[in-house]
Design a protein around this nucleic acid. Structure first.
Length: 837
RNA sequence: GCGGGCGUGGCGGAAUGGUAGACGCCGGGGACUUAAAAUCCCCUGAGCUUUGCUCGUGCCGGUUCGAGUCCGGCCGCCCGCACCA
């Protein structure tokens, strides 16, 4: 082989075409091999892939290629989360149809992904905006409707009166529409809902079995579902009416010293009608911040309504307050307040001079202990009549039991989880397949008339939903009575699209959403990889949708993702300077970076800012296309895997990618040193080679790509230092195979140069020889009083006595001992000797 | 405030309770070259009285023959959030 350099500009494309032509990465449903489904969260086709996508897809690609080498039939698909608002915004701004904008973006991004050499089965590519996809989604939606899991109800939305559109919560900034700047109104609209709450317990229980998921994500989902168990009961008020409250601590009922209702509770509203001061207080509560931190530190405020609530056991008359810390959305919007055992109630009672009674103590003997803050732990009841001495859990059951027996309350489980509102008053989404008939009400579109296709000829330029003002599209005949009727003009939340795409990847027949038998072969996804930002909504909705389909008999799988990995972001320094009193950012391409600072190309100095997530506004982005053109796909992929553990942020650096480029060339030169005529034996190198095979495999399976990369560097260095030998040739081949999942183009080029048959993409992972995995000589650390004094070499498996003698024979150890008496010698075979004096 | 995570060289980071700093980046020195690029070699935690010794994994304590790792208490940073009764 010549001493030329590896040239990715021609090699990358050549091997990408070779994989395409051989259909190397096409997954075979009928394969007898063990299966592996590797999936990365599919992208929104915004126009360009960003470096975060590159990192995400490179990780998945390494696993997919590695699993193939280990003999698995791998499903590694890609598609497009293609509905959503950016297409409509682009339509307004650029006068281009959402459809053509989206498909143009898909074409661009697909070409970008191809240039990175990902081992994807493109035959299964799908776009959610394709009627061939969303038509099946409509059918599934109707199935869920017929199973009673879809319903309609009136619900408040954020309405932008200028744009005539509904806004998502994140599009409302300081109460104003993000685009129009107009104050957002709350409007009641009839909306479609999915009954995710019917699965709350299942979704919660399922989390326990998801041991392939990060603990963090499971905790976030658990909190989101938010199960609590307690007592709901009615206070009789002094005006004779009833006030329902909910508490998780019925055992503290004898400590209740007031009752509080939310400012928007009907009782508060009723009081305000005749009491201007109450009305003013309610207004006051509506102001102020809503962030978690602000709420936690906000002062507890209340307004005494003058009403009294009758305690069900003691008949005490408790004051009823309107309180800013009580939420209408949770429980019944009213609470019994127990200052002794709830910190919020404690703060409130302290401020308004209400009684603070201890009714729970760590032990009965501490019944009189004073409270300087709320005691929220468990214990035994004290000062609580018939509950005294009962432990917390027994007392809870006792109070609920009595309430139920005397019919003034009952045990109740409250969930934070709400049903999933899926109506969007937008054009670019899956049409909800229903028809409104004056006579027949809401009627599902018959399945043989699906898909309900979005009309192409829409006027996007005006505000509002174009489906509503389309001249013909919505006017149809009722499928039931044949009379004049109108289509539903709402479209589905795009989270619905992404709640089942992984099923469609596994099986995509033309006549139905998927074939459950084929799906059962592939699902659950063995490794799902994506951003932490989807920890709750997407992942919870996908789990729900899968369970819902299982419940109505469409699927056998209940949990879609066996293992989940959330990767870190790609970050970069920022460069900026003050211009006319504003901080102006410059992109890395315009900046000269030295070891000590950064300047513009004209030499003017810049401030180097923090390393933060790449974003357009801070101009600290790098363009994947540019760097692939400069360094080739393999150097970029290698960088994505090197150094930082994959769950942490990866700081992009020019020096780092340069280093990767150098290593690509270094490996290439190594391939050129394969010497067919080499003789001589190199047992030590053979050992290192086999240890590297085992270590890299272990690291890839643990997704510790940075460690796998380090192992390959180590092996490469060892080979470079070794003289020619048969083992060295084998080591070169092995290094190529170990690097192949990460640098597939270089590996193919090297494989061909070494005269190997076929594609390295089809090669097997090298076997390890167990005899070569263990060393026959080990380095023993010799410590005196726990401090290292010497290191000695000993045969592996040397006896305790031999090691002890060896250690005591060391000159350095003797010097350290200085004649002191040896009291004890600790020997850890094959590792260390510690001499204690 | 609560929950979760993390603190190791100039930087990214390694390290089943057993030789702290693997591997990479940066930096320094050298070789090759007319020169440069490319490449290769060596050094690179701190300090000191430098054949060697001492200190060193945010801080304080504990367990242990032995602690970056385990336990208790602090400090700092990051992420998430729901005043959830």
């Amino acid at each position: 082989m010549s001493e030329t350099r590896f040239d990715p500009s021609q090699a990358d494309g050549r091997w990408q075409r070779a994989w395409d032509e051989a259909q190397t990465f096409r997954a075979d449903d009928a394969s007898e091999r063990p299966r592996c489904y590797v999936l990365e969260m599919f992208p929104y086709p915004s126009g360009r892939i960003h470096i975060g996508h590159v990192r995400n897809y490179t990780m998945g690609d390494v696993i997919a290629r590695y699993k193939r080498m280990r003999g698995h039939e791998v499903l590694h698909p890609m598609g497009w989360d293609a509905f959503g608002m950016p297409a409509e915004n682009a339509a307004i701004e650029q006068k281009v149809h959402p459809r053509s904008w989206t498909y143009q973006n898909i074409a661009n991004m697909k070409a970008q992904l191809k240039r990175l050499g990902f081992a994807l089965d493109w035959s299964r590519e799908l776009a959610t905006c394709d009627p061939a996809y969303y038509g099946h989604e409509q059918a599934l939606f109707i199935d869920l409707y017929e199973a009673g899991l879809v319903y309609r109800k009136e619900s408040a939305v954020n309405w932008d009166p200028v744009d005539q559109t509904v806004l998502a919560n994140e599009q409302v900034i300081d109460g104003k529409g993000w685009r129009s700047g107009a104050p957002v109104e709350k409007r009641k609209l009839s909306q479609w809902f999915l009954k995710i709450t019917a699965f709350a317990q299942e979704l919660l229980d399922g989390l326990d079995k998801l041991d392939g998921w990060p603990e963090k994500v499971r905790v976030m989902q658990e909190n989101w579902i938010g199960k609590s168990q307690g007592l709901q009961f009615g206070f009789t008020l002094s005006d004779g009416s009833k006030l329902e409250v909910y508490t998780t601590r019925p055992d503290t009922i004898f400590g209740a010293s007031f009752v509080a209702v939310a400012p928007d509770h009907p009782v508060a509203q009723a009081v305000a009608e005749n009491d201007p001061q109450a009305a003013a207080f309610i207004e006051l509560c509506k102001q102020g911040g809503t962030t978690a931190a602000e709420l936690e530190t906000a002062e507890k405020l209340g307004y005494d309504t003058g009403l009294k609530a009758i305690h069900p056991f003691t008949n005490d008359r408790l004051p009823v307050y309107i309180a800013n810390f009580v939420l209408m959305e949770y429980g019944t919007g009213a609470i019994m307040a127990v200052p002794g055992h709830d910190q919020r109630d404690f703060d409130f009672a302290s401020k308004y001079g209400l009684p603070i009674r201890r009714v729970i103590a760590p032990s009965a003997a501490e019944a009189g202990a004073p409270l300087s803050e709320a005691y929220t732990g468990d214990g035994v009841c004290v000062n609580s009549d018939f509950l005294d001495t009962m432990p917390t859990d027994v007392a809870k059951r006792e109070v609920i039991g009595r309430a139920e027996q005397h019919r003034w309350g009952e045990g109740r489980t409250v969930w934070r989880l709400r049903d999933w509102g899926v109506s969007r008053q937008r054009y670019w989404g899956t049409p909800i397949p229903f028809i409104h008939c004056e006579k027949c009400g809401v009627v599902a579109v018959p399945k043989d008339q699906l898909p309900v296709v979005l009309p192409e000829d829409v006027d996007i330029s005006q505000p509002g939903n174009p489906l509503v003002r389309h001249p013909t599209w919505k006017h149809v005949h009722c499928p039931s009575c044949g009379g004049a009727a109108v289509r539903e003009t709402d479209t589905l939340d795009t989270f619905v699209d992404s709640s089942w795409y992984f099923l469609r990847f596994a099986s995509q027949p033309a006549d139905k959403p998927f074939d459950p038998e084929v799906v059962a072969k592939w699902l659950p996804v063995d490794q799902y990889i994506g951003g932490i930002e989807h920890a709750i909504l997407h992942l919870l909705y996908a789990r729900f949708w899968t369970r819902a389909l299982a419940r109505i008999g469409k699927l056998e799988v209940t949990e879609p993702f066996a293992s989940l990995f959330t990767q870190g972001m790609v970050t970069h320094e920022t460069y900026s300077r003050e211009e006319h009193g504003r901080e102006v950012f410059y992109s890395p391409g315009d900046v000269l970076r030295t070891a000590t600072g950064a300047t513009l190309k004209d030499g003017s100095p810049l401030t180097i800012g923090r390393v933060i997530k790449m974003s357009k506004s801070k101009k600290n982005t790098v363009d994947p296309d540019e760097i692939v053109a400069r360094y080739g796909a393999d150097a970029v992929r290698w960088f994505m895997l090197s150094d930082s553990p994959p769950e942490r942020d990866l700081p992009w650096s020019e020096a780092g990618i340069e280093g990767c480029w150098r290593f690509v060339q270094r490996l290439w030169r190594l391939f050129g040193q394969h010497d067919a005529g080499a003789s001589g034996e190199d047992k030590a190198l053979a050992r290192k080679t086999h240890q590297a095979i085992a270590a890299v495999a272990e690291d890839i399976e643990a997704l510790a790509f940075n460690k796998a990369v380090a192992r390959i560097y180590e092996l490469t260095s060892a080979i470079e230092k070794a003289p020619p030998s048969a083992e060295r040739n084998a080591a070169i081949r092995t290094a190529l195979l170990l690097a192949a999942p990460m640098m597939p183009h270089l590996a193919e080029e090297g494989w061909a140069a070494l005269g190997q048959q076929g594609l390295v993409a089809d090669a097997s992972w090298p076997e390890t020889d167990p005899a070569l995995l263990v060393e026959d000589e080990v380095t023993i650390a010799i410590q005196h009083k726990g401090k290292l004094r010497d290191t000695l070499t000993a045969p592996k498996g040397a006896s305790t006595e031999a090691l002890e003698a060896l250690a005591l024979g060391s000159e350095k150890v003797q010097r350290s001992l200085g004649g002191a008496e040896v009291r004890k010698v600790i020997v850890v075979p094959d590792r260390l000797v510690n001499i204690v004096t």
